[in-house]
């Protein structure tokens, strides 16, 4: 039984996730797996994802991982990253697809032709280091400064229906939700595995988390 299972459905830069976990948890057993049984047996689960959400949903289902993901999201420390956050919601306008529906709300695209605070064209994808403004306390933020910068790369963002799950916002150009949490579940739009010290701190907090 692995300490940490990183769910592999062929749609993420899993090697980066794995390397970062090895760095913060050198003695833990960490597996990349597309086997629902292994996900079910793991102590904690990371649900990453990159690319387009319709492809991610399809690849996940083709590997028979849906019920394992649903189960892990209810029962053990669970961290969603990027599309792994978006897929938890009910619906995305990206390909007009239905998500897992674990969390209520929508996934929508940044509007085109917006301007930033300085009057420059707002680029899509939102790519680079942006500030994460926390609005709630959570053990996963321990040791991370308010408004610390994490690495983002995405064109869609989540709009949760339940304000109580919102953990943090980021401005682009107006605030969007970049982190949510509920019970044993935590999910972020940014990439902690690519966010140097602050990202490694968050992953370490996840590895130590006892919800």
């Amino acid at each position: 039984m692995a300490d940490i299972a990183v769910i592999d459905y062929g749609m993420g830069n899993l090697r980066s996730v794995q390397q970062s976990l090895r760095k913060v948890a050198p003695t833990a057993s960490i597996i990349l797996t597309s086997d629902p049984q292994e996900v079910a047996r793991a102590g904690r689960v990371i649900f990453p994802g990159q690319g387009a959400m319709p492809d991610c949903m399809r690849e996940m289902d083709e590997r028979g991982l849906r019920s394992a993901v649903l189960d892990a999201a209810k029962n053990k420390p669970f961290l969603g990253i990027c599309i792994g956050l978006q897929m938890l919601f009910e619906h995305s306008t990206e390909g007009n697809i239905t998500g897992l529906g674990i969390l209520r709300g929508q996934v929508v695209r940044f509007a085109s032709h917006l301007l930033d605070q300085q009057g420059d064209k707002l680029k899509i994808p939102h790519m680079g280091w942006n500030q994460v403004h926390r609005v709630a306390k959570h053990p996963l933020w321990q040791g991370i400064a308010q408004d610390a910068r994490f690495y983002f790369v995405h064109s869609y963002y989540v709009i949760p229906q339940d304000a109580a799950i919102v953990q943090a916002n980021t401005d682009y150009p107006t605030p969007f939700v970049c982190a949510v949490a509920r019970d044993n579940l935590f999910a972020v739009q940014f990439h902690p595995e690519k966010s140097q010290d602050v990202g490694l701190t968050l992953l370490k907090n996840f590895v130590d988390w006892k919800p």
Partner: peptide, 28 residues
């Protein structure tokens, strides 16, 4: 990739989708 925790871009000689896959798998 084992030592670097910021995004890595790799280029040069990418000719087909399989090259993209191989580079991503290597840690790009």
């Amino acid at each position: 990739a084992e030592q670097v925790f910021i995004p890595l871009t790799v280029g040069g000689g990418v000719r087909q989708v399989a090259d993209v896959r191989d580079l991503l798998n290597a840690g790009a």
